[in-house]
Design a protein around this nucleic acid. Structure first.
Length: 193
DNA sequence: GTCCTGATCCTCT
DNA sequence: GAGGATCAGGACG
């Protein structure tokens, strides 16, 4: 399969479109310990005017990467223990992003199992904080662009990712009724609930 | 400065 | 199904 990073122009579009088209794409991380790859099976869109979006109340030290160039990573710390991985979308300065919520593990499975201290395939990447752990993504990647050769997203090997289901988002209160969560129908690697 | 909340996950019942 | 871990931001005084 081709492991060529998606171009900046892919991300510099409507956030919902990017969130849908990221489904089926591959998240690739060349870590010192080895290569891990996961197929994106679940995303959520966070947009301007959305109370749940960190950027909805202007720029702060924490959310500054969200206002950067499209195609940058925005990684943020939550609940004192976990990190979530987002990709910045739309034009620079707008402050929109897509949260990667779940992956189907493809390569580096044993590495993921070691990092997660879990054996089951469905326990490796079935949640935003889990996949960050399994992929070995660190907070130092915050604000980094995804066109390099360490951490990036590549087009999926299949043209058609399958049927995309649109539902309301998970685990948030503000804006909970907005249909901004997308996942691949039938995948057993999504974060359920 | 204090207080509260959260785009979570894990470990019990 | 419920509660704890654990900390940075944001709201308020």
């Amino acid at each position: 399969m081709d492991l060529i990073p998606l171009k900046k122009s892919f991300y510099n579009r409507d956030t919902v479109t990017v969130a849908k088209e990221l489904l089926g794409c591959l998240l690739v991380h060349y870590a010192p310990e080895g290569l891990t790859i996961g197929r994106i099976v679940e995303t959520e869109a966070y947009m301007q005017g959305d109370p749940a979006c960190h950027a909805s109340r202007g720029m702060t030290k924490r959310n500054r990467p969200m206002f950067g160039d499209p195609g940058h990573a925005y990684i943020y710390f939550i609940y004192g223990m976990y990190y979530c991985f987002n990709v910045v979308t739309e034009r620079e300065g707008l402050g929109e992003a897509v949260l990667i919520r779940a992956l189907e593990p493809l390569q580096g499975i044993s590495l993921m199992q070691g990092r997660r201290k879990k054996e089951k395939m469905t326990d490796l990447c079935s949640g935003p904080a889990k996949l960050v752990q399994a992929m070995g993504i660190e907070k130092s990647y915050n604000g980094m662009h995804l066109q390099g050769n360490k951490l990036f997203i590549a087009p999926g090997d299949k043209q058609d990712p399958g049927v995309i289901i649109t539902t309301t988002r998970i685990g948030i209160k503000a804006g909970a009724d907005l249909p901004l969560r997308f996942y691949i129908a039938g995948s057993c690697y999504i974060s359920k609930r």
